Computed example of a mutant assay.
Amino acid sequence: KIFIDGKETKSYRCDIAFIGTFVDSGSHSVVLKYSTPFLTAGVISSFIGLIALVALCFYLKSRKKENE
């Protein structure tokens, strides 16, 4: 999202990897706010995977002790 003087404005794709907007001449305050898409889903799935890995390690370790 792009804010000029506190007001959200439309963004446009520039070249391939850039974004831009039109700004009138003069002094302005321009703020760009970026939020990573799917960040929450990625953090949750990573946490679940880590818990599953730790549980699997404990399970295999306890199973190895039973066989000895």
Rank of each mutant, 00 (worst) to 15 (best):
K1G: 07
K1Q: 08
I2A: 09
F3S: 02
G6L: 03
E8C: 02
T9D: 02
T9F: 07
T9W: 01
K10R: 07
K10I: 03
K10F: 03
R13P: 04
R13C: 01
C14I: 12
C14L: 11
I16G: 00
I16K: 11
F18P: 00
F18S: 15
F18L: 14
I19W: 11
G20N: 09
G20C: 14
F22H: 09
F22M: 06
V23M: 11
S25A: 12
G26Y: 04
L32V: 14
L32C: 07
K33Q: 15
T36G: 10
P37G: 04
L39D: 02
L39T: 01
L39W: 05
T40H: 09
A41I: 13
G42P: 02
V43R: 12
V43A: 12
I44Q: 09
I44A: 15
I44H: 09
S46R: 08
I48V: 15
I48Y: 10
L50N: 03
L50C: 07
A52Q: 06
A52K: 06
V54E: 02
A55E: 04
L56A: 14
C57M: 08
C57I: 14
F58M: 13
Y59D: 08
L60E: 04
K61T: 12
K61Y: 12
K64W: 07
K65G: 06
K65E: 15
E66Y: 13
N67V: 06
N67Q: 06
